[in-house]
Nucleic acid binder design. Structure first.
Length: 879
DNA sequence: AGCACGCCGACT
DNA sequence: GTCGGCGTGCTC
């Protein structure tokens, strides 16, 4: 039997991704696809994943003809596959679509820290051992001693890294060369465990239960009485101090002796032996109670709680009533979190219909047809989550399991708690802010089938959940679903759709503001469109637009307009809450006329120009075209044209000055660095310890804060004027989502948007909560300019420490691309750029990029040979 | 990636 | 002369 393997070292070898090994007969029966195995690779041991098991030896023959002799795989590292068959199939697609090697793709689908590290150790050779054995029986005392020393060291092995550290690189290398020639020491390859480890701790376990335990108790109580009578008979005077200590300890303990009648009714103990027995009985009580209360007792904690010494506790172990053993400790990301049980709510008619559509699709899949993905377009607050939960409950009842993907930020909030509360103990959470250990424990629970629902960020899609029956992507328009830093640069939505196709299960895409691309697909019939038009319990808040040009003309230069000031005053007077939102994404500052709202756009791309203060030029970060900075507004000749940038700190200072008594909370990347900080901020605001929350787009997503009656958008202009084709979509989404935060409670809410561009169609449509109209206008622009979804984009980025070499390579590469495009005869396909990247210098490296655009670029990608270039397929931004 | 091998500059 | 830099090639 043969096996095709992807190896970690072979990750970089794109030409020969799969290596073939022979399977030793002893392992044949145990071998499965997706298992992690150890294989010999060159002179070392490497980790691999089983891609395919080949029954016939035809492949072996053809490899032999090429002069390649097959080697045996070394061992199976983990019996349970790390990836399920459908995930391997997904990996194949990901690798092809996102132009990433198969091995790279597969290994990046595994939970972090799982992979083992390959290294070398030095050990005594077999020859040296045999020699030592011979000498051990020698007459010569010193020889025997040497033999003994040698044997003592057989277990200890020295790893080569350590040797290098101890001796320095060159000395070590020299020594290793000598070792190679010596026949006493051998250099052996081995694998060491990755960072993801099972956490063990000592735990006390009750070995007897029920009846048997009662019998033991009686025996101990009998012994206690016996000890007491002995003590009285011998007139032993007990240490009164220790006796009283025991009683205080026992009564201070929440699960004190009081639970069993015998202990409560027992008279104060007189003898020392009796005292110990009484404490042992208390220990048994605590252990029994912990049986139904989750976390087990460690010996140390139990001793502390009962005043026993470990020696005295071990007496119970000797009697085989308890055992002290190393137990697996689960690291639970939700530990200590209040998870209020959430009951299914009664659905509205709209919700009922949506749920039915999902379940019909499930049934369709069961009958062998691939169900259409469902685009669930529901306004903010229309109850999408409840539909997800009930759909999940329905498939769980059929013995299946489901995944809900949420954008990164939502993981710190209420959504997770709601899901976890609905399916207690049957939910796993996966996202990047968990520790490697927490993630590993969740991953293993998932793999073992201990959960029904996985909720997490995009990578949760790769959790090996058996019997997957439904995939839900909440807020499907979110950019967080696109991976761009690491290969493969996949979009979780696309990956989920593929998985749905492979497994014939429905994929539900939910959003109040679907991605333009998604809505387009729904229109063309690729998705089934399901709409929820009504909010539950409340209505959508009215949106008021404040024209900042008018404010300026009236002499009000503050960043807080009179209307917003008025609104905030009201909120504070009424003891309600407000959110002030400011978009500050990127360092980009756009050029804006403060009189007429004119923004400078690139004449080739219709994308806002960015001002570069160092070179004093306006530049298009899309095509690279440069122009002179403007001194007067081309539209109204005003000199009030300047670049525009604004921060949350500035807003905070201004508001504090306006309302000295108001309690402010700032929420952005500077004040909330990790998930605990996020939660703490949210808790503070939700519990009304602050009146006004000031933040960036982080606060726009999915928060359900009933106390908020006013949402102010300090400036919509930065969002509108990001120099990217997708900025209208992002602006619309953002404004709609932010507005959706208002008026979710009993008080009516309203929204104030400040802008220099009140006529902009994004602001206009968002203020009327009119997705449809926004979509019509945006899709037309996309079509006119050939932006996605009408053409595919691929971004190529090159980085180099030398700016000129970087630019030069970019130019040369763009010529090569153009050449390939022509040779392949690709129609309607071209290259935009090269241009410096949005952040031209990152970690002392210059970055240049270009965009290839065309109806389908995969033919191009197949011929592109650019190992030094980052290739991002369907980039989330053209910047 | 890791680790060989291999071919040129700055020091004991 | 040796030490040590990192360019190139290989791994079923």
């Amino acid at each position: 039997m043969l096996v095709e393997v992807l190896t970690t070292a072979g990750r970089w070898n794109t030409e020969q991704p799969l290596l073939t090994y022979r399977v030793p007969t002893a392992l044949e029966a145990r071998l499965r696809r997706g298992q992690l195995i150890a294989v010999p690779y060159g002179d070392r041991l490497d980790e691999g994943i089983v891609w395919r098991v080949l029954a016939d030896d035809e492949a072996a023959i053809s490899l032999l003809e090429e002069g390649i002799e097959l080697r045996d795989l070394s061992s199976i590292l983990d019996e349970t596959p790390a990836l399920l068959p459908h995930q391997l199939e997904l990996a194949r697609w990901l690798s092809e679509y996102y132009a990433t090697s198969l091995a790279h793709t597969v290994f990046n689908m595994l939970t972090p820290g799982l992979l083992q590290r390959s290294r070398f150790v030095l050990k005594l050779s077999q020859e040296a051992l045999e020699d030592a054995m011979r000498s051990a029986s020698s007459q010569d005392a010193s020889l025997r001693l040497r033999a003994l020393l040698g044997l003592l060291h057989t277990d200890g092995s020295l790893d080569v890294e350590q040797l290098k550290k101890m001796l320095g690189k060159t000395k070590a290398q020299q020594l290793l060369k000598e070792i190679k020639q010596s026949n006493l020491i051998v250099r052996e390859p081995e694998l060491v465990e990755g960072r993801a480890k099972i956490r063990l701790r000592r735990a006390v376990r009750l070995l007897v239960k029920g009846e048997e335990l009662l019998i033991w108790r009686e025996q101990l109580e009998e012994r206690l009485r016996h000890a007491e009578s002995e003590a009285t008979a011998g007139s032993e005077v007990p240490h009164s101090v220790s006796a009283s200590q025991a009683t205080t300890k026992a009564s201070a303990n929440p699960w004190s002796l009081g639970t069993t009648a015998s202990a409560t009714l027992a008279p104060p103990v007189q003898s020392k032996a009796g005292l110990i027995i009484q404490r042992q009985l208390a220990a048994l009580d605590l252990l029994q109670q912990s049986l139904n209360r989750g976390s087990p007792w460690t010996p140390a904690a139990l001793c502390r709680a009962t005043d026993l010494t470990e020696r005295q506790l071990r007496q119970l172990e000797d009697e085989r009533i308890i055992s002290i053993e190393r137990q697996e400790l689960r690291r639970d990301p939700l530990q200590g979190r209040a998870l209020p049980a959430s009951q299914p709510l009664t659905l509205t008619q709209e919700q009922e219909q949506a749920l039915r559509a999902v379940l019909d699709a499930v049934r369709e899949g069961e009958q062998g047809t691939t169900p259409k993905p469902i685009l669930l377009h529901g306004v903010t607050g229309s109850g999408k989550t409840e539909i997800y939960l009930q759909a999940l409950a329905a498939i769980i009842a059929q013995g299946k399991r489901g995944v809900i993907l949420v954008p990164e930020i939502a993981l710190t909030t209420q959504a997770v708690q709601r899901v976890a509360g609905r399916f207690p103990d049957r939910v796993a959470i996966i996202h990047s802010e968990l520790s490697v250990g927490e993630r590993y424990d969740e991953w293993r629970r998932i793999r073992a089938g201990q959960v029904d629902v996985v909720i997490g960020s995009r990578s949760a899609l790769f959790a090996p959940l058996p019997d997957l029956g439904l995939i839900i992507i909440d807020e499907e328009h979110e950019a967080a679903y696109k991976q761009s830093e690491l290969k493969p640069t996949y979009h979780a939505r696309e990956a989920a759709l593929k998985l749905g196709e492979i497994l014939r299960i429905p994929v539900v895409l939910g959003s109040a503001t679907p991605a333009v691309e998604s809505y387009h697909r729904a229109e063309r019939g690729r998705y089934q469109l399901v709409e929820l038009k009504g909010r539950i319990g409340t209505t959508l808040p009215p949106v008021e637009i404040v024209d900042l040009r008018v404010e300026l003309r009236a002499g009000h230069t503050s960043i807080i307009s009179r209307r917003l000031h008025e609104g905030l005053t009201n909120v504070l007077e009424q003891g309600q809450q407000a959110i002030l939102f400011l978009n500050r994404r990127g360092a980009a500052s756009c050029i804006l006329c403060r009189d007429c709202g004119y923004t400078a756009l690139c004449e080739h791309c219709d994308i806002p120009l960015t001002y570069h203060s160092t070179e004093r030029v306006l530049m298009c970060h899309y095509c690279g075209a440069q122009s002179k900075p403007l001194r007067y507004c081309p539209a109204c000749q005003s000199a009030e044209i300047r670049y525009f940038g604004l921060g949350t700190e500035k807003v905070q200072r201004t508001i504090q000055k306006m309302f000295p008594e108001a309690r402010l909370l700032r929420w952005d990347r500077d004040t909330a660095r990790n998930r605990h900080a996020h939660e703490a901020l949210l808790d503070r605001f939700a519990s009304r310890q602050a009146d006004i929350l000031i933040g960036t787009q982080m606060i726009a997503k999915g928060l359900d804060l009933p106390g908020v009656t006013l949402v102010g958008v300090v400036s919509a202009d930065i969002a509108l004027n990001l120099p990217d084709y997708s900025s209208p979509e992002r602006a619309f989404t953002l404004l709609t989502q932010v507005a959706g935060r208002a008026g979710r409670g009993s008080e009516a809410g309203h929204v104030i948007i400040q802008t220099f561009n009140p006529e902009h169609f994004c602001i206009d449509t968002a203020s009327r909560h009119n997705y449809d109209e926004f979509y019509r206008m945006e899709i037309e622009t996309r079509e006119r300019y050939g932006y996605p979804p009408f053409r595919q984009f691929v971004k190529f980025t090159y980085s180099h420490s030398n700016r000129h070499r970087c630019q030069l390579e970019a130019m040369r590469f763009s010529e090569r691309l153009t050449h390939w495009i022509n040779r392949l005869g690709l129609v309607n396909t071209d290259i935009v750029g090269p241009a410096p990247a949005m952040l031209e210098r990152v970690r002392n490296k210059y970055r240049w990029q270009m965009i290839a655009r065309g109806p389908d670029l995969h033919r191009l990608l197949r011929v592109v040979d650019a190992p030094d270039w980052e290739i991002d397929i369907d980039p989330i931004s053209a910047l």
